[in-house]
């Protein structure tokens, strides 16, 4: 444990020198601030930020995750000559990368919301938005590490990361659309709820969307989703699914890392 913290500390120290993680924080801060400054109600601001969270956070987390892994490769090679388990090195590096993305995101987005959005309801939505963004960060960095372990070079890993991003953001939803259009006469509410659990990006988007009043547009399927995800039980299921999406890639990655030959 102590050695993992040491690895974490060194990696964080390294990453803190990376200026554009500060820019990442500033970016979310600027977006949040601008939304409120130009007069959006907290609910609308949340809806706009939601678009960014499900689009940008995964993209940045996946690519930066891969870059972190490979930039720390030399350091990792050095570490692995020491009497430290591979699992510890992997976990330390993962935590360092995830933290260095999660903290700028939370600070950048949290400050303008805390500054302007004093409504209780907005605070609830903000917390959920922050939670979703953080979960997506953890998930995507984990996926990035898994991809990195499985590929030989940085470019291949980056390509893999983009394919994964494209799959969850575009292809999966496209398949859902095909499914919906193929069974127009069936009530797909429950099967779709199950399928959404399998895509963390969709899951994060829908859980938040259901809390915004735009959910009224979602009609019958929305009502079923509301029933499913709106209650505490549904929220717990969603959080569990998101947690599994974090834990499974890390475990798989750690196992693969232990077996890798370098």
């Amino acid at each position: 444990m102590h050695s993992m913290l040491t690895v974490l500390r060194f990696n964080l120290h390294e990453l803190a020198r990376n200026r554009w993680l500060g820019a990442y924080a500033l970016f979310f801060g600027a977006i949040g601030w601008a939304l409120f400054y130009f007069g959006a109600a907290p609910d609308q601001a949340a809806a706009s930020v939601l678009d960014l969270v499900v689009f940008l956070v995964p993209l940045v987390s996946l690519t930066v995750g891969v870059l972190c892994f490979y930039s720390a490769r030399d350091y990792a090679d050095l570490l692995l000559t020491q009497p430290i388990s591979r699992r510890t090195v992997f976990a330390g590096q993962y935590l360092a990368a995830a933290l260095s993305l999660a903290v700028p995101f939370a600070v950048g987005l949290g400050v303008p919301f805390l500054w302007y959005g004093s409504h209780e309801r907005a605070m609830e939505t903000l917390l959920l938005l922050l939670l979703a963004g953080l979960m997506l960060t953890l998930i995507c960095v984990a996926l990035a590490f898994l991809i990195s372990v499985g590929t030989e070079n940085r470019l291949g890993a980056l390509g893999g990361a983009l394919v994964v991003w494209l799959f969850f953001v575009v292809i999966y939803d496209g398949l859902l659309l095909v499914l919906i259009m193929a069974f127009p006469n069936y009530q797909l509410g429950r099967p779709l709820a199950g399928l959404v659990l399998l895509n963390p990006f969709d899951l994060a988007r829908i859980v938040i969307l259901l809390r915004l009043d735009i959910a009224a547009l979602m009609g019958y399927t929305g009502a079923i989703f509301q029933q499913f995800f709106g209650a505490t039980r549904g929220l717990v299921i969603a959080l569990t699914a998101l947690s599994l999406w974090t834990v499974l890639p890390i475990l798989l990655g750690a196992i693969a890392y232990a077996r890798r030959d370098f």
Partner: peptide, 20 residues
């Protein structure tokens, strides 16, 4: 148009895929 003909499509509301 899609949501009008296939109401369940609304689960893709505000998704990047819908924007695309």
């Amino acid at each position: 148009v899609l949501a009008e003909n296939y109401p369940a499509t609304m689960i893709l509301l505000r998704s990047p895929f819908a924007e695309l």
